[in-house]
Design a protein around this nucleic acid. Structure first.
Lengths: 202, 202
DNA sequence: TGATATATTGAATATAAATTCAATATATCA
DNA sequence: TGATATATTGAATTTATATTCAATATATCA
């Protein structure tokens, strides 16, 4: 015996995470196909051969990253759903937090870019496509329900709640995509402009 | 002499256009890198070798397509700027038209996807990057000016007009990106929801 | 019709990247 | 310390795709 099973498992997982982080940087900059195994290995500071000890291919890394990214967006939407506040306030707080995150978290921007990239290409692993099909709509459904509840309450404007949810997420996503390539530090975003699309009182 | 110069030129250009159309379909579906010369040739119904009589590489096709796409968005923004109407009405009409186009024009969705793809990758030809740097901001500037004029008039809400322009285009772009992969024919979009972000009276 | 220019094909070749692998290093524990 | 398992490297090989090219077809006009 050389090393304890659990310790090995932990070290292995931390190496895999280092590789995933390196791959995320490259995928976000160049896309899945333009990124070479060599790019990921160099970014992670290892030889290309070693990468194959942890992942059988860059596609597998991509699948892991997409899965993580989707789970993050789902978790974020659940945290909104489970807030102690009325529907209108939930929409307001969610937008405030999301806009702030767009302005301050590179990781969030990367996550948005990766998902957008994956959603807009058929040239990604089947497994990633399945994950997207399965998980992508959850945040839309969560917001749709909050919009519907807000309409009953009178705090949310009239209109198909499904449509309002689409406007909610596409605005946020469009903004994130824009910000990830425009370090527009001279413009400060005011979430209340977006909020005025959905809320009756501003 | 075999054929008149002009006739040749015309035929050549029409073939190039057929190739560009084929390439656009593939680029939008798969991205620049995942698209093989063979994919474009097959889509255009020609042998791969022939493609090189018209374009030296797929990168050159991409540059042509990006240039066309950017020019289209610029032309669209100029047509809004030159409308015979007050600033508020221009914003309203522009949004109405854009949302309608998102719902009905696949070409428009493809254009948005191509630009987003190009804007979000460093793995595109330098020439395409230069075109984007040079042309991308024009529509933002056009809308920014209309927003500022609308604020003077009182028809547009307060706030940095640069920010309002960013919200304008990122909402439209986010929506287009979403729609290009979700044939959501059960939801009808109401442009007035987006308009309410910018206009004082709805 | 025949001369000429261009179009077209698909196989041959070149190039680039993915993947494998033999050699070597390192860590752990008996 | 030595036995053993895993980590690590970079060169060798394979595979995929881009690119070239020789052969052939087609269109135009004198």
């Amino acid at each position: 015996m050389a090393r304890s099973k659990e310790q090995n498992e932990r070290m292995r997982e931390s190496r895999k995470e280092k590789i995933r982080n390196a791959a995320l940087l490259q995928f976000v900059k160049q896309g899945l196909f333009a990124t070479r195994i060599q790019d990921i290995a160099a970014e992670a500071g290892i030889a290309q051969g070693l990468l194959y000890h942890y992942y059988p291919s860059k596609e597998e890394i991509f699948v892991d990253l997409i899965n993580e990214a989707l789970d993050k967006t789902i978790a974020a939407s659940y945290s909104v759903r489970d807030m102690e506040a009325g529907p209108g306030e939930k929409i307001r707080f969610a937008l405030e937090r999301l806009v702030d995150t767009i302005e301050n978290s590179q990781t969030f921007l990367d996550t948005c870019r990766l998902i957008t990239q994956a959603t807009n290409s058929t040239a990604i692993p089947m497994e990633a496509q399945d994950l997207i099909r399965e998980k992508r709509n959850i945040p839309y459904q969560v917001i749709e329900q909050i919009m519907a509840a807000g309409q009953k309450e009178g705090s949310v404007v009239a209109g198909d709640p499904k449509m309002l949810s689409i406007f909610f997420w596409t605005s946020i996503n469009g903004l994130a995509i824009y910000y990830s390539t425009n370090n527009n530090r001279d413009v400060t975003l005011d979430y209340r402009v977006i909020a005025s699309m959905f809320l009756t009182e501003n």
